[in-house]
Every structure is written in C-alpha cells, then in structure tokens.
Nucleic acid binder design. Structure first.
Lengths: 229, 229
DNA sequence: ATTAATATATTTGTATACAACTTGAGTTTA
DNA sequence: TAAACTCAAGTTGTATACAAATATATTAAT
C-alpha cells in the first residue's frame, strides 16, 4: 500500500503512525474514501486499535497536505478535487520535472529497472482486475515512486512526492471505465520509452517525456472539466 | 513576528495554533532557540497558558518542516544546521526562483513597493540595533515574504516558503558580528535593484537577481564551512 | 404549512492522568 | 580502575473524561 521504506531505527510509535498515515492516504488517493467522506476519529480509533490521540496526529498531517479538511464539531472531511488547484499543481510539477536532470540525477539502479519492468507487466493486466480504475491508480503511484529514485536532491524529491499525492486522485476520479485499457497501454508505452532513455542515461529526454505525460494529464483535466465532473 | 495574514473565518483554536506555531518558528529561525535547544512541552504549555495537547500539535508540525527533532522520552530538540542539507535546499531554491516569471507572476502592488521601501530604511538602521545579527535575520525574512507576493502559483509559494524557513537560520548563525553592516548594505542594494526591475515588470531579470542572491549565500556557506562552524 | 427558535445529540478540541521510553547517577562486579 | 548493571527522575506517547462547536430534530409562532 505504497509503504515507503523506513530506517529500522524508528520507535514503535513512529511505525504505528506511518502505518496509519500511509493507509489513510492511500485510501484517499485511491478513492476508497470519496471526496466529501467524513472520517470519524472514533471509528478510525476502533479500526486501528488505538485511542483518538494518535489518529488525530495522522489527520492533522493529512490536513496540512491538503487531503483532509478538519472542522471543529462537524467532522474530518476528505477534500473535494478543485480544478483550479489541480491545474496549479500540474503547472508546477511540469516545471519541476525539468530539474531531475539538473539537480544531482541518480543513475537507474538494477533494482529500479526491475521494478519498472514488473510495473509494465502489471499494466497489461489492469483491465482484467476486478477494479480496473483503482488498479490503474495503484500502478500509477508505484510508477511515480519508482521514478523518484532518480531524484538525487532530497528536498526536491519530498516536494515532488507531496505535489503528486495532491493530484493522484484525478485518475480514478476522472477516468472513464472504458478508457482504462487505453490509459494502461499508454502507461505501458511510457515506461518502455523511459526504460530506453534511462539505459542511455539520457535524463534531459526523460524529463521531457515525463513533462509530456503531465501535459497530457493536464489536458485530460481540461476536457473533463468541460464535460462536467 | 512574521505573522502571515489569515482569513478572518478561522476558529479560535486555529488562531491559537497559528500564534504558537509562528512564535516558535520565529524563535528558532532567529536563534532565540539555538540548535540543540530542548523545548519542554510543559514549559511551553505554561508559557502559552494551554495544556500540552495544542503545544504538541505545533511541535509535530515543526518536526515535519525539519526545524525540530522529537525523541520519545528524551525531549524535543531544535535541529542542528546540516551543511549538506542546506546546500541541497539552496540548490533547489536557486532553480525555483526561475519559475517566478514562468508561473503566473503577479504585478508588484503599491503595497509591496511600500513595504520594500520600508525594509530598505530598516536596512540602514540594522547596525544600530541592540542585536544586529538578529535584526538582520528579521529584516531578511520580511524581504523574502514580500517578494513572495510576486508568486501567483500558490503551491510554488508554499514550497518556496517552506524551503526558506529551512535555511533562514544560516544568517544569524554564520554571520560575523563585524560583517553585519556590509551584509545590510548589500541587502539594501539588492532591494534597490529589485524595485527598479519590478517597476519595469522585468520578472526574468528579477529572477536572475534573486538567483545571484542565493548563489552568494551558497558561496558564503561553503567558505564558512572551511573556516569551521 | 413555513419559518424561526430551542434543545438534544454528535463531533472535534483540550486538559490530565498514566504508560513507555530515555537518561544519567550511583552501585556493583570483574 | 573500568565496565556493566540498577534504579530513579524526567520526558514524550497514549488513553480518556470533559469542554466547545456544530448539526439535527423538535417545537412554537406566524
């Protein structure tokens, strides 16, 4: 469930926090919690077998990251997708990908290549999945996180991840059920191209490729907007 | 104390949070709390006349932003300035300023011009201040926040602010007492140049100017490193 | 019937007691 | 003497009762 590797040196409390945090975040960006859903602290406390206190720490973090709106006395609500905000974030992300080859790009490890190849395979079976849209979103997240391996500048990686999680919901939200197959093929092709470019250490072209990917997503947003969401 | 303007529609709890948060943050970046200082939750709770609960929310936020390290059973410690980390952040910031004129730059308002002129005046009296280094850092923060008015892309502004607060401490930390006057004059000159460029809506040059400012800061870091900190 | 006011229930925010953990001084032991 | 152990004091993490705020249902007035 997109669990980021953590140093083994962290406390049990921190592990528990990370577990709950990453679980809730993935539920939000995969639309297990639809926008507008109210997350009850008491229910979550029951589910994770803890008190409200550690739950509230997680919810506060999700609020800072723009995925949750906490309203005193009313509830904790999953934020709606705001078209202007999404476009702003995409605009920024399109500029940031350029920096991958400017700021300390890291060579593609054998591990990364392997992961990307596995994800390519995963692309082919997305349509056969019981929940294709959700599965596509899931693979999309994994692909993004894999690509982040190339970013050597740590603050840049942190920023890109945060921005990504703010837009990740658009895929399962806007994608039409009958287009998932097409999108999956497209993602497969993009990974192919990325693998080719990374084999040549051609980071500028890789940045360009990713930029095109984001531009298309952006365009998709604009057309979806006119058709009404 | 660098209080960002807030919508008037926020709850009393949120106002209290912002007050404590911004107060502690400014104490850290102005070195009222030196790196390594332990912040006792109980003491802070006493000072702000609240219980530990709201204090802990603030401390958690400061930890996420890299200004604090929370250690269970040990204490909450102001983070040390890490040279490699600072350099990474500066590298990134140097690229991000370029985006000011790419992503929806906003025209300089009369208000902004006025603020910058006031800050120029402030530069001239920094050396006469009882704590010149602290005063320089204070003015430097205000200048930065003023410049951020030009950034139309909201996520970009948020990112730049966060990165700024991660590096802001270097000024009062590394600056030599006898160099404050020189630095203040430099800042004064930079504001002059910025005002000139903004009057012509020359955002590319403004970006270049700010980039040079960051590059110099970066260089300063490198030399300080060799002389030992 | 509609609307405004009120009361009640529900939910998040805060205060506080206690648990888990760290630290350092003091003691013991090799 | 030095290293390992023990324990006590102090700090953050958690659970929980209560306060503050909100939403909903009820009632009364028009």
């Amino acid at each position: 469930m997109f669990m980021t590797e953590m140093p083994s040196n962290i406390s049990e409390a921190e592990q528990r926090f990370q577990w709950i945090y990453q679980t809730l975040r993935s539920r939000i960006i995969l639309l297990d919690y639809q926008p507008g859903t109210r997350l009850s602290e008491e229910q979550l406390a029951d589910e994770f077998k803890v008190s409200r206190t550690p739950i509230r720490r997680v919810l506060n973090r999700l609020e800072v990251e723009g995925l949750l709106e906490i309203r005193h006395g009313a509830g904790n609500f999953v934020t709606e997708l705001s078209m202007p905000e999404l476009l702003e974030v995409f605009e920024l992300r399109m500029e940031l990908v350029r920096l991958i080859d400017v700021l300390a790009p890291r060579a593609a490890s054998a591990n990364l290549i392997q992961r990307l190849q596995n994800l390519q395979m995963a692309c082919l079976s997305i349509t056969k999945h019981p929940k294709p849209k959700r599965r596509f979103a899931e693979v999309n997240v994994e692909v993004f996180l894999s690509f982040m391996d190339l970013v050597g500048n740590q603050p840049l990686r942190a920023v890109q991840e945060q921005l990504f999680y703010r837009t990740a919901r658009m895929w399962p939200y806007l994608l039409d059920e009958k287009n998932v197959g097409y999108e999956a093929e497209l993602l497969h092709a993009e990974i192919s191209e990325a693998l080719r470019l990374l084999a040549n250490n051609d980071y500028p072209s890789f940045g360009h490729l990713y930029r095109c990917h984001l531009a298309m997503a952006c365009q998709r947003l604009a057309t979806m907007q006119t058709t009404g969401v």
